[in-house]
Design a binder for these strands. Structure first.
Length: 577
DNA sequence: CGGTGAACGTA
DNA sequence: CGTACGTTCACCGA
């Protein structure tokens, strides 16, 4: 396979197909497929079959209000979707934030006030018909003020209305495309990539993360005790866990360890006076009094018992030993992916439980030093870009600054993320001299954030800083302004890194599918691909190739090198290489 | 019952 | 060495 497979990242204009569906839970579902001037409306299962053959024959760019809405039935039918324009993801990119209901997308695309989007009717439709913003034409999706009708959820349950609903999606997508190309050279490409990520999110939910169930249960048992048979059993285990802490504080056995105020009081009674009971505050006191050590161990075990215990296993791990949760293609800030049910915050202690199934391997790859490399791209700092030629970027930076590597690393991270004080101070001055272009970009972002001005990431995502911590406007509170500044400085780096990551993940998805591989985890700079053992080496090659291809598309001509550490393993916890 | 903050897991 | 997210718990006020 050498790049012949179509990917969602190709900028192929022209052949567009829209898919709209009636909402679930209201009797038989219908769908409409609009392609090359024709519209076919039919029961959902029939349209899914049509979509499958259209994908096979033409691989059009699918337009939908959102992947969750329309692509889910296609993903469930295992149709390998290649290209999409996701109206909701385009809206989030172009206008910022996370909210992207059809009415908002339509209004923003048409340049009419989003505040005036009609709310859905609360109870009876009779009352809605009397509202002054009610549509004049019962068959039109648009009301008298040019907004999408507020009752569209109800209105589009009528299959006769699906064609108009699909045309509204197409109209929105075309307006978004115009706005994207007017906004910047990379924005439409980012929409393609983000739309692919949204489809990937549905596949991640469908496929799940493969676990070794018995190994995972062993790891849970090590912290939470054996699986309780009854509720009394569970209470007993819990009491025993509490007792291992409370035995160190005779006379205070009634302390509720789950209540921070009581814990603080208990600690004060044994001479440990702390402002709060957070882990990093208590850590130095581990050796001062045995109750602190016992408490911190208790917290670790309690976390696994409550959040990642038997209830979690039973609720989210299917009979096929796959951990499933919902995924979103972007959060509300910089645009990272998010996941539910612990997929993004599984404690490292449970990672040995994540394992390839029979006949398969995990191809694990993580991007090395992604954020400073991204800074080199988005700032266009030629000197800093030169440092990315090294596998370890901090080595040439240290050499240029005349400091030790750890100092250089702390200085670069401090420059990107905040604190301009402390040990890194002197090296920071060196950074300003050696890489003034990169440092100036970070300073500009910080200043724009402090003033409450919006920014855009490299790929074009709008970062609104004015609405950040909405309580007061910029200029009213210096502490809040500084927080906005730090947020902005971080968002342009984290957000751009998220864009490159998603382009990479979407490319891997497209180029390894025919090898029987599935992307099963996306973790900000790390990918896990579940692949048949016999294709392990080829998948690993494709993962590395995908990084080169997506980086070149994301930053054409940039003299910046990105590196992935790729390995074929049985368990997530296995050593690299 | 819903919202908030503490706490902590991940990057 | 800052930012982001999701989950659980206790508490608060309705």
């Amino acid at each position: 396979m050498t790049g012949a497979a179509p990917t969602l990242l190709d900028m192929v204009p022209g052949d567009v197909a829209a898919l709209v569906v009636t909402p679930p839970g209201r009797g038989e579902r219908y769908a409409a497929l609009l392609h090359r001037g024709t519209c076919r409306t039919a029961p959902l299962a029939d349209v899914v079959a049509m979509a499958a053959s259209l994908e096979r024959e033409a691989a059009p760019r699918w337009v939908w209000w959102s992947a969750e809405d329309a692509a889910a039935p296609l993903v469930d039918a295992r149709i390998p979707l290649a290209r999409a324009w996701d109206v909701a993801e385009a809206h989030r990119l172009l206008h910022g934030g996370w909210s992207a209901a059809p009415g908002e997308c339509w209004a923003a695309a048409h340049g009419i006030p989003v505040e005036d989007v009609p709310s859905p009717p609360t109870d009876d439709l009779f009352e809605f018909a009397g509202r002054e913003d009610a549509p004049a034409d019962p068959d039109s999706p648009v009301d008298v003020r040019g907004h999408l009708r507020g009752d569209h959820e109800e209105w589009r349950t009528d299959p006769a209305h699906l064609e108009a609903w699909g045309r509204a999606a197409l109209e929105t997508a075309h307006l978004q495309h115009d706005r994207a190309t007017a906004t910047g050279p990379r924005v439409a490409g980012t929409v393609h990539s983000e739309s692919a990520a949204a489809v990937l999110c549905l596949e991640l939910r469908r496929d799940g993360l493969p676990l070794d169930r018995s190994r995972t249960e062993e790891l849970v048992a090590a912290s939470a005790g054996p699986r309780p048979e009854t509720e009394a059993d569970e209470r007993q285990t819990r009491r025993a866990r509490d007792e291992r802490v409370l035995r160190h504080v005779p006379g205070r056995e009634s302390t509720d360890l789950r209540n921070p105020a009581q814990v603080r009081e208990m600690l004060l009674a044994v001479g440990v006076d702390v402002p709060n009971t957070r882990k990093w505050v208590l850590e130095p006191y581990r050796t001062v009094h045995p109750v602190v050590d016992a408490l911190l161990d208790w917290r670790r075990d309690e976390r696994i018992a409550t959040t990642y215990g038997y209830r979690w296993l039973d609720a989210h791990v299917g009979p096929d030993d796959r951990l499933r949760g919902r995924w979103t293609a972007c959060d509300g800030a910089g645009g990272r992916m998010t996941a539910e049910n612990g997929l993004h915050n599984l404690p490292a202690a449970l990672r040995p439980g994540v394992a390839a199934h029979e006949g398969h391997v995990l191809v694990r790859a993580d991007l090395g030093q992604i954020e400073p490399r991204v800074l080199a791209v988005v700032s266009g700092d030629v000197a800093f870009a030169a440092a990315t030629r090294a596998d370890d970027l901090y080595a040439p930076v240290a050499q240029r600054l005349g400091v030790d590597r750890p100092v250089a690393k702390v200085a670069v991270l401090a420059a990107m993320y905040g604190q301009r004080s402390g040990a890194a101070g002197e090296a920071l001055a060196g950074l300003e001299r050696a890489y003034p272009v990169a440092m100036a970009l970070l300073d500009r972002a910080y200043d724009a954030g402090r003033r409450g001005e919006p920014l855009r990431t490299w790929g074009g995502r709008l970062i609104p800083t004015g609405r950040f911590l909405t309580s007061s406007p910029a200029g009213a509170d210096p502490a809040l302004d500084a927080a906005r500044g730090r947020f902005a400085r971080n968002a342009i780096i984290q957000g751009a890194a998220a864009e490159l990551f998603k382009a990479w993940a979407a490319t891997v998805r497209a180029t390894t599918r025919d090898l029987g591989a599935e992307v099963v985890l996306c973790l900000h700079d790390e990918l896990l691909v579940h692949a048949p053992m016999e294709h392990a080496a080829e998948v690993a090659v494709q993962v590395d190739q995908a990084l080169e291809d997506s980086a070149r598309r994301w930053a054409p001509g940039a003299p910046v090198r990105f590196v992935a550490d790729t390995s074929v393993i049985a368990r997530w916890s296995d050593a690299k290489d």
